[in-house]
């Protein structure tokens, strides 16, 4: 009887250890920092950096889900800066404005990763040569037809980021690069 009970306890222990082992891979783990719960996104960063659309401003490449530190260093003092504490969690969401673009970040471990890039006016273009004021046809020529459309917003998804164009009267009125890893 003792052997059977010991066996069952061993099975329970192994189940726990096995579970812990699978979490260490970080696939869909919930990490707990102190007493908070934070979704693990380590894999997403690598994935996004590998295949997402990027934006280039003043010869600096900005990658959604990429590290903000080298970008901030290269671009220098922002025109304006705002930081917002995440509700409940440690770390700050940061918003940097550099002239015609806004770069937003989210905390991940001890890094700030880019969550969004927003183009504010037509003084800058995307690497694919689309800007605010471009025609819808120019957008389609540059990015193709592999998009989803919702209420006038054309969304091109790539990896864990998406590039969104708001088109009104066949004219691009807004360009935003966003992370899809910030949520979930």
């Amino acid at each position: 009887m003792k052997k059977k009970m010991l066996g069952m306890l061993l099975i329970v222990g192994l189940l726990c250890v096995a579970g812990c082992g699978s979490d260490a891979k970080g696939s869909d783990a919930v990490n707990v920092q102190g007493s908070s719960v934070v979704a693990d996104q380590n894999d997403t960063q690598k994935e996004a950096q590998a295949d997402g659309y990027v934006f280039v401003y003043k010869k600096t490449t900005i990658t959604v889900n990429g590290d903000m530190a080298p970008v901030a260093e290269a671009l220098g003092e922002p025109t304006s800066y705002f930081e917002a504490a995440s509700c409940a969690f440690d770390g700050l969401d940061k918003i940097y404005t550099y002239g015609p673009i806004v770069v937003e970040t989210y905390p991940e471990g001890n890094k700030d990763l880019v969550s969004a890039i927003i183009v504010k006016d037509d003084s800058v273009t995307t690497p694919e040569k689309v800007t605010i004021g471009s025609s819808k046809q120019e957008m389609l020529d540059a990015y193709g037809k592999d998009y989803t459309e919702e209420a006038g917003m054309f969304v091109y998804k790539k990896g864990s980021m998406k590039l969104q164009f708001i088109v009104k009267d066949d004219v691009v009125t807004s360009i935003q690069y966003s992370s899809t890893a910030v949520f979930e």
Partner: peptide
């Protein structure tokens, strides 16, 4: 009873307590 009790205690131990830095939970 022993297995369920162990799992219950483990769950109680492992769940976040939200008493230190992040209390909102």
């Amino acid at each position: 009873i022993l297995i369920l009790g162990s799992l219950f205690l483990l769950q109680k131990l492992l769940m976040p307590k939200y008493v230190a830095d992040v209390v909102e939970g």
